[in-house]
Computed example of a mutant assay.
Amino acid sequence: MRRSEFDRAVADEFGARGSSLISDLVLSELGGRTPADALAAGTPPRDVWLALCAATDVPASRRYGVGRVEPKRR
Rank of each mutant, 00 (worst) to 15 (best):
R33Q: 07
L30S: 02
A41K: 05
R74C: 06
P44D: 10
D12H: 14
S28E: 09
V10E: 11
R62D: 14
R46T: 07
G42N: 00
R3V: 13
G18M: 09
V48D: 06
V48T: 04
R33L: 05
V10T: 06
F6Y: 06
S20A: 14
L25I: 01
S19Q: 15
R73Y: 14
W49Q: 04
L50T: 14
V69L: 13
V26D: 01
D37M: 12
P44N: 09
R68Y: 06
Y64D: 13
P44E: 09
D12L: 13
L39A: 00
E70C: 11
L27P: 00
P44H: 09
R74D: 08
V26C: 01
G15F: 12
T56V: 06
I22D: 08
G32A: 00
L27H: 00
D12A: 14
P59C: 11
D12F: 14
S4D: 15
D7C: 03
G65W: 11
G42D: 01
F6S: 03
E13Q: 13
A51H: 05
R68D: 06
E29Y: 01
V48N: 03
V10A: 13
D24M: 08
L50D: 15
P44L: 12
V48R: 03
E5Q: 07
A9Q: 05
P35M: 02
G32M: 00
F14T: 07
A54L: 14
R2Q: 11
D37I: 05
G18F: 12
V66T: 09
R33A: 04
S19A: 15
A11L: 15
V10L: 12
D47C: 13
P59G: 09
C53Q: 04
V58H: 03
A51P: 01
S20G: 09
S28T: 07
